[in-house]
């Protein structure tokens, strides 16, 4: 398995303060990495850095050549403006292929085929002509994942994807992400507050509190101080 992203002593930050300090970790192909931490612990900053929207202030960030070519699929936090956006599912999914268009102003047949296959993977083909704002939260999330898969099928970064979903939709969502990870071989990096929910799914946990509090497997995480506090004490490991 090749390594997709390597961080060695990386700092990310804005003008006058660093939000992430001295981060060392790596993401290998096929990983399911979950980033946890309190609000303001630098999780979203890390995501921006990995996507290339923020230059590292120090250290070394290596992104594999294949990822740099196709880019990283990204599922951002949903904004309020999106929830009532007048767009069909097809329009939204197709917009994920824009990075392949280059300077061409229109979508080619190849891009349409790609969008259709991403929608097949997520079982949202019947929703193709439905309006995005009329879908349930879980369906909207599927549409956004399909869009991200159009950009690349190698790696997805999900930024707090379960916010605003109801419990059964959350379970659906986890099943879906696990399927993408295991069957389609998509590398997943998920930022989440729901540690208890993801600890059974992920194969790596990164606990951030500006610095790295923990990086390793879920089994080891259960044994650490930080892990016990997040999982709700001794008997909190569900």
């Amino acid at each position: 398995m090749s390594t997709l992203i390597t961080c060695r002593h990386v700092d990310f930050g804005y003008e006058n303060h660093d939000a992430v300090i001295d981060l060392t970790m790596e993401v290998a192909e096929g990983d399911y990495l979950c980033v946890v931490g309190a609000n303001g612990s630098g999780k979203s900053t890390l995501v921006k850095g990995l996507l290339g929207l923020l230059k590292p202030a120090g250290g070394e960030l290596v992104v594999a050549e294949e990822l740099r070519r196709t880019g990283i699929g990204y599922l951002p936090q949903q904004t309020a403006a999106q929830r009532d956006f007048p767009a069909t599912v097809w329009e939204v999914v197709l917009s994920g292929t824009l990075n392949r268009c280059g300077r061409r102003p229109f979508y080619s047949r190849e891009e349409k085929r790609l969008a259709a296959s991403a929608m097949e993977k997520l079982d949202i083909m019947p929703l193709k002509n439905h309006c995005y704002r009329e879908l349930s939260g879980g369906q909207q999330q599927r549409v956004l994942i399909a869009r991200a898969l159009c950009a690349t099928s190698r790696m997805l970064i999900l930024d707090e994807p379960i916010t605003g979903l109801d419990p059964s939709a959350i379970q659906d969502f986890y099943r879906l992400v696990r399927r993408l990870n295991r069957e389609e071989g998509v590398t997943i990096l998920m930022v989440s507050h729901d540690v208890v929910g993801v600890i059974g799914q992920a194969n790596k946990i990164l606990h951030l509190q500006q610095r790295v509090l923990f990086f390793g497997t879920p089994e080891e995480y259960r044994g650490t101080e930080a892990g016990r506090r997040y999982l709700g004490g001794e008997d909190g490991c569900l």
Binding site: L51, G52, A87, A148
Partner: peptide, 22 residues
Amino acid sequence: AVCRHRIFAVTFDENFSKAAGI
């Protein structure tokens, strides 16, 4: 006429568009 898809992408989701290199 020329940039309608990009305008759509930027309007719908600024962060995603940035990540996609628009």
